[in-house]
Design a protein around this nucleic acid. Structure first.
Length: 523
RNA sequence: GGCUCCGUAGCCAAGUGGCUAAGGCAGCGGAUUGCAAAUCCGCCACGCGUGGGUUCAACUCCCACCGGAGCCUCCA
């Protein structure tokens, strides 16, 4: 790779310049990427998954394009909310953080986020944080005040450049620490500990880090003073990233990051305005009033991601997040997720159908994992020519600020082309080896693109039977399908339809195809 | 009040100066099927919140207005 530096026209929207810019790395072929992770004081909600899924996809894409990416996601495990929450629960702050970190990690895993290289914890980085604060004081950008240390925003002429606001505009009352601040916009780098609070020794007494400083310290420690991409939710632009940026830029007298990327926020749909059925007419068809509440947040009681995952599958949630552009806000709820699920069925059915023809799982078909390694055949058959073109289209969308939403359209076109090929070539009646090979190659291209989105990496469990019962269900279904086939052979359609209808009522769908009858439990 | 962003078919959603405005969900016709389901083919925005303006040309740029969201306090 070093001798063959990637040259792809990737463009990235930069919050700092408010424009799409050509992607250029600081070090040839290498990318340093930092995403602000969660404060682990409560269970994660779907909003916390947006950034990880997006940046997981960004890393997959950049890696595919030949870059060597180091992706860091921090864990904030010391913070006021952690202290409050742990007291409520009667456990230590560290226990709470450990529990919630485990919850976060399990959610990431369920959504296929497995590209993270480093997950530093704030409490493991206290030494680096203190050193960083000392440097800022030495350089005149920060001052100690009665056990606290504050960043002096008036010393930074560029303060506010990220969120487009000026320091003197900040009319905040300065919080509880106002009396110790020189100006209201100053923010804490180090907070003195009250009795009983978790604390670490420092040159300013016992205390703990402020919110923003850990990211400056940890990103520097792992990625260096300047790195390529810094991400987070749109709600972090101010004050978190603004402050982080100010600390690092002032400390090092150089830019902190090349590209600031911010993802849009999720909004929750909620049923509201349940009107009583007082309709004049007998047929009351009140439209379901769906109120869209604001941004979801844990302070409003959002959560239950684990339940959501078991209900909708991680892949469905991931696809839902990726079918919209990462910078837009989207409304999330059971309906939108179910729709995403319905869309995915197209692919699952294609894979099942193809798997039967090929005699092996589509998920076992190898595919190209480096963009430069794709080799188009000299005279491709029509199907492959079409897929190659769709592949180009897909990659073009991804090059343009990781437009996953636009790219999914090409995925659907690929599925249609493949289904059409199977239909028109009548592969299900008889298939020549070379025809199956073309199908296999086509599926390989589809999988290559899907892998960039981190989907279709492994089969989704079709029968939802649990444990031992799955085998029982499969055996029962085999029997039922067999009996029904006998009825159909005798043209006893009353019986066969009764079986089908009865199964449908308990959530099992039957499909009669040329290759026999298949069944699936409604997902 | 200040600062951002958004408003594209019944719903979700890509596009953002110039060929016929992607794709998905739902729906409707047709092929197929014993009937369905699935799959394929076709239909489904003469118009992209409203009103002005710039331009040879605007959904795409500018202004105003209406509607919605976010940030300015903890937040992914």
């Amino acid at each position: 790779m070093p001798e063959n530096l990637p040259e792809y026209p990737i463009r990235v929207y930069n919050t700092l310049t408010k424009a799409k810019e050509s992607f250029k790395t600081l070090t040839a072929g290498k990318v340093g990427m930092y995403l602000c992770g969660p404060t682990v004081y409560a269970e994660a909600h779907i909003g916390h998954m947006v950034g990880p899924v997006i940046f997981d996809t960004v890393k997959r894409y950049l890696t595919y394009c030949g870059y060597e990416v180091t992706w860091v996601v921090n864990i904030t495990d010391v913070d006021d909310k952690l202290i409050v929450k742990s007291r409520e629960k009667g456990i230590s702050m560290f226990q709470l953080a450990t529990q919630m970190t485990a919850d976060y990690l399990s959610n990431l895993q369920a959504l296929g986020v497995d590209q993270i290289d480093r997950m530093p914890r704030a409490t493991d980085s206290i030494g680096e944080i203190i050193a960083f604060v000392e440097e800022l004081i030495a350089k005149g950008f920060a001052y100690a005040s009665d056990g606290d240390v504050f960043f002096d925003v008036t010393k930074d002429p560029e303060y506010g450049s990220l969120s487009n606001r000026s320091a003197d505009e900040q009319q905040g009352e300065g919080g509880g620490a106002a009396s110790r601040k020189r100006s209201a916009g100053d923010f804490a780098l180090w907070k003195s500990a009250k009795p009983g609070e978790p604390s670490w020794p420092s040159p300013w007494g016992q205390g703990r880090p402020g919110w923003h400083i850990e990211c400056s310290a940890m990103s520097r420690g792992i990625l260096g003073q300047t790195f390529d991409i810094h991400g987070g939710g749109l709600d972090l632009v101010f004050p978190h990233h603004e402050n982080e940026l100010a600390q690092s830029r002032c400390c090092h007298s150089k830019p902190m990051v090349s590209y600031w990327m911010h993802n849009g926020l999720m909004r929750a749909s909620s049923e509201g305005g349940k009107v009583g059925g007082q309709s004049d007419r007998g047929e009351a068809s009140e439209p379901e009033a769906v109120a869209v509440s604001g941004k979801i947040s844990r302070s409003k009681g959002a959560g239950g991601l684990a339940g959501l995952i078991s209900k909708h599958t991680g892949e469905r949630i991931r696809f839902f997040l990726l079918k919209t552009h990462y910078r837009s806000t989207s409304v999330f709820g059971d309906e939108p997720l179910a729709e995403a699920g319905a869309a995915l069925e197209t692919f699952y059915r294609l894979f099942e159908r193809s798997g039967k023809l090929l005699g092996s799982s589509v998920y076992d078909i190898p595919y190209v994992v480096r963009r430069s390694e794709f080799k188009a055949p000299a005279n491709p058959p029509a199907l492959l020519a079409e897929l190659i073109q769709l592949r180009e289209s897909f990659l073009g969308k991804m090059d343009d600020d990781f437009n996953t939403g636009g790219a999914t359209a090409d995925l659907f076109e690929m599925a249609r082309a493949l289904n059409r090929y199977i239909d028109q070539t009548k592969l299900e009646e008889s298939a020549k080896p070379q025809e199956l090979d073309i199908l296999r190659q086509g599926l390989s291209i589809l999988r290559e693109m899907a892998a960039l989105l981190g989907i279709f990496r492994k089969p989704v469990a079709v029968s939802s039977g649990q444990g031992d019962s799955a085998g029982v269900v499969a055996g029962l279904m085999e029997l039922v399908v067999h009996l029904r086939a006998e009825a159909r052979a005798k043209r006893d359609f009353a019986t066969s339809d009764a079986i089908r209808d009865g199964l449908k009522k308990i959530g099992i769908a039957i499909q009669d195809g040329k290759q026999g009858t298949t069944w699936e439990i409604a997902r």
